[in-house]
Amino acid sequence: MSQHIQLELIDVSYAPISLASEPSADVLADIHLTVNRGEWITILGMNGSGKSTLLKLAGGLIRQGVRGSLHRAGSQGGKPIPIVMQQPDAGLVGSTPWEDVVTLLERQGAPADGLVLRAEQALREVGLEGRMHQPLDTLSGGQKQLVAIAGCLAADAPILLLDEITAMLDPGMTAIVCGHVRRLHQQGTTVLWITQRLEELLPGDRTLVLKDGRIVFDDSAGALFRRTASEPPDSPGEQVGFVAPYTVKVGWELAAQGIELPFIPLTADQLAEAVTGYGR
C-alpha cells in the first residue's frame, strides 16, 4: 500500500454473523474505497444505507463477517480507531474535559511521560483551553463533541471518524464544531464525516453516497446535483432521494438559461461564490 494511502478497501462486503440457518444479507457490498492522508471525505445516504457500518468497518470495530481486502495504515498495532457519535455522553469518562482525556489516555496505556501535555494540547486544538477544568455537565452538546474529538487527537487516532456529530446541535454550535474540524483538516488531519445536512458540505469536498450498502457516487459535493440530461431528475443526489435545496434549484434554472456555474451550490454563500466566479 502506498505511503500516501491511509485506508484501502478492495471489494469489501459485510454481512452480520447469523445463528439462523439462512445467512444474513449483506449490509455493505462491493465497496472499493481509497482514503489518502489528509483527505476530507463526506459520507451521505438515507437511513439504513450503511454509512455508520462503513465507518465502523474503517475503524476496525467490525472484524467478523467481512469479506474482501481491508488495509489500515497507522492503526496502532491493530487497535480500533475511536468514532465520535451523535451522543458523546456515552463515551465520556471523566468529570471535566481535562480528566476525560487524561483518563482515556491512561486506559489506553499511554506512557505517563508527557501524557498530561498531550491531553492539554489536544483540548487547545479544539478550542477548549479555557474549559479544561469545567464540569462536563455544564458544557453544551457541541462542547462535549469537541471533548470527544480531543480524545481522538490525544490518542493519535490516524483518522477522525465522525458520525453525524452535529445532528443534535443548533446551527450556531454546528458552525463552531464544523469550524474546528475544518481547521484540523487544514492542518493535515484525515477526516471521514457522516452527515445528513447538505449545508455542511463544501463544493470541493470528496463526497460518497451510499445506497443499499453500495457506493453509488464518489465525486465532489459540487457535482452532487449536477444534471446531465433534459429530463430530470437525473442528478446523483436526486436519484438517491435527496431533496434539492433552493440554491440548487437556482443553479438548475441558471443552467437552463445557458449559465453553467462552476459547481452547483448547496448554500446561499456558495451560490454567491459561484455567481461571483462565473466566467472567470
Score class of each variant (00 low, 15 high):
residue 238 E to N: 12
residue 259 I to R: 14
residue 246 Y to N: 10
residue 245 P to E: 03
residue 224 L to E: 04
residue 242 F to P: 09
residue 223 A to N: 13
residue 245 P to Y: 02
residue 231 E to G: 07
residue 219 D to C: 05
residue 242 F to G: 09
residue 207 T to N: 02
residue 217 F to T: 00
residue 240 V to P: 07
residue 254 L to K: 08
residue 230 S to Q: 14
residue 247 T to D: 05
residue 231 E to N: 12
residue 216 V to H: 04
residue 244 A to W: 08
residue 232 P to F: 00
residue 211 K to E: 10
residue 216 V to L: 05
residue 236 P to D: 06
residue 259 I to Y: 13
residue 223 A to H: 10
residue 208 L to T: 00
residue 227 R to N: 10
residue 205 D to C: 04
residue 235 S to A: 15
residue 219 D to H: 08
residue 209 V to W: 00
residue 263 F to I: 02
residue 238 E to F: 12
residue 222 G to V: 06
residue 245 P to G: 06
residue 235 S to L: 10
residue 256 A to Y: 12
residue 256 A to H: 14
residue 215 I to S: 05
residue 224 L to N: 03
residue 220 S to W: 03
residue 254 L to Q: 11
residue 257 Q to S: 09
residue 242 F to C: 10
residue 229 A to N: 14
residue 245 P to F: 02
residue 257 Q to G: 09
residue 251 G to H: 11
residue 229 A to D: 13
residue 208 L to A: 02
residue 263 F to N: 02
residue 252 W to S: 04
residue 207 T to G: 02
residue 221 A to F: 06
residue 205 D to Y: 02
residue 237 G to V: 01
residue 251 G to V: 09
residue 207 T to R: 00
residue 260 E to T: 13
residue 220 S to E: 08
residue 217 F to Q: 00
residue 260 E to S: 14
residue 210 L to K: 01
residue 248 V to D: 13
residue 221 A to R: 03
residue 260 E to C: 10
residue 237 G to P: 06
residue 252 W to C: 04
residue 226 R to E: 14
residue 254 L to A: 08
residue 232 P to E: 03
residue 258 G to A: 03
residue 247 T to Y: 05
residue 229 A to G: 13
residue 248 V to E: 12
residue 230 S to K: 13
residue 237 G to F: 03
residue 258 G to S: 05
residue 233 P to Q: 13
residue 259 I to E: 09
residue 241 G to N: 09
residue 255 A to E: 11
residue 256 A to R: 15
residue 261 L to T: 01
residue 263 F to L: 04
residue 263 F to R: 01
residue 211 K to W: 07
residue 233 P to W: 15
residue 215 I to R: 02
residue 209 V to S: 00
residue 217 F to A: 00
residue 221 A to K: 04
residue 214 R to D: 05
residue 246 Y to E: 14
residue 243 V to M: 10
residue 248 V to C: 09
residue 240 V to I: 14
residue 264 I to M: 11
residue 229 A to R: 14
residue 222 G to Q: 07
residue 212 D to M: 06
residue 221 A to S: 12
residue 211 K to I: 00
residue 212 D to G: 06
residue 240 V to T: 10
residue 255 A to W: 09
residue 231 E to T: 15
residue 245 P to R: 01
residue 247 T to P: 08
residue 233 P to E: 15
residue 215 I to P: 07
residue 237 G to S: 05
residue 235 S to H: 07
residue 221 A to N: 07
residue 223 A to I: 03
residue 213 G to A: 01
residue 234 D to S: 02
residue 228 T to H: 13
residue 255 A to C: 06
residue 239 Q to A: 15
